[in-house]
Design a protein around this nucleic acid. Structure first.
Ligand SMILES: [Mn+2]
Ligand SMILES: [Mn+2]
Ligand SMILES: [Zn+2]
Ligand SMILES: [Zn+2]
Lengths: 139, 139
DNA sequence: TTTGCAAGTGCGAATCATTTGCAACAAAGA
DNA sequence: TCTTTGTTGCAAATGATTCGCACTTGCAAA
């Protein structure tokens, strides 16, 4: 018994009433294969590897639309460029290795819980949050 | 018995061998009076209130120099503009009220501790981190 | 299948925050 | 006071992202 699979990005976009163009097919394909946190230029590079005709403005527009509908997740780490990943099944936060630039995901139920607690203590309700831990490999 | 006071920014800059110009005097003064998290434009506005002749390029250059020496702290919240605050006595993290834009500081020893723990578990040493919690006032 | 048309695209120009080159200026030590 | 450099103002450059617009195309209705 495998769990119910999430519909493909193409299907989700169709459900949203978007037109499935050749460009979008390629862009969505590349995003679905993504297992890291590429910036727009890198995504465009991967997309051009399949269809060299896709303009970067189209990539930007499509990423924005997808992020607006929470079909992908947008990040901005300290290098100042937008990075993207497919919408994760469950929330996670990130280590960023300052020496290699590598991004590593982690989950800490404990930290999540304490955030709720401290927010409540201040009379707040959490809308979203971002925990980025910049790290070095321990010698 | 009052604790030892931190030398003024002007003194710290002089210690670093920087020339204390009229512009810097004003910029450092404004920063020292800062108890919020203004962006460059807002800082420039406050500075111009004292000396209208200070150019915004000078403000940018001075802020960069100060941040390089850790005499002030630089942030980039989700609005995409750099914000600054005087170097805090002790580390803290931030709530950002998504409805008002207000930035509220908080400290959680527990969260800090759990970050150390999870980093260690992954074989990392923490260089720095950023925890931003976007919140709404609880109804 | 064809057609109509709003949504989508390519391309170059515009934006916007931030940085930089350079000539003129002015701290600060001698 | 003189000299040496670090600083400044200004305007132009940057770099990532967005936008305007004419052209194209997906796709629903005929
Ligand atoms: Mn991730
Ligand atoms: Mn703060
Ligand atoms: Zn989290
Ligand atoms: Zn912290």
């Amino acid at each position: 018994m495998t769990g119910t699979e999430r519909p493909s990005l193409v299907e989700q976009c169709r459900d949203n009433g978007w037109r499935i163009t050749g460009q979008r097919r390629v862009i969505l394909d590349v995003i679905e294969k993504t297992d890291d946190h590429p910036d727009v230029e890198e995504l465009h590079r991967r997309i051009r590897g399949i269809d060299p005709g896709v303009n970067i403005a189209t990539v930007y527009r499509t990423l924005n639309k997808l992020a607006d509908e929470n079909l992908i997740e947008r990040h901005m780490f300290d290098d100042g460029r937008l990075r993207y990943e497919p919408a994760p099944d469950a929330h996670h936060d990130h280590f960023i290795d300052v020496e290699t630039g590598e991004v590593i995901e982690f989950v800490s139920e404990d930290i999540e819980r304490m955030q709720d607690e401290i927010a409540r203590k201040h009379g707040f309700e959490i809308v979203s949050h971002k925990l980025e831990i910049y790290v070095k490999r321990r010698p």
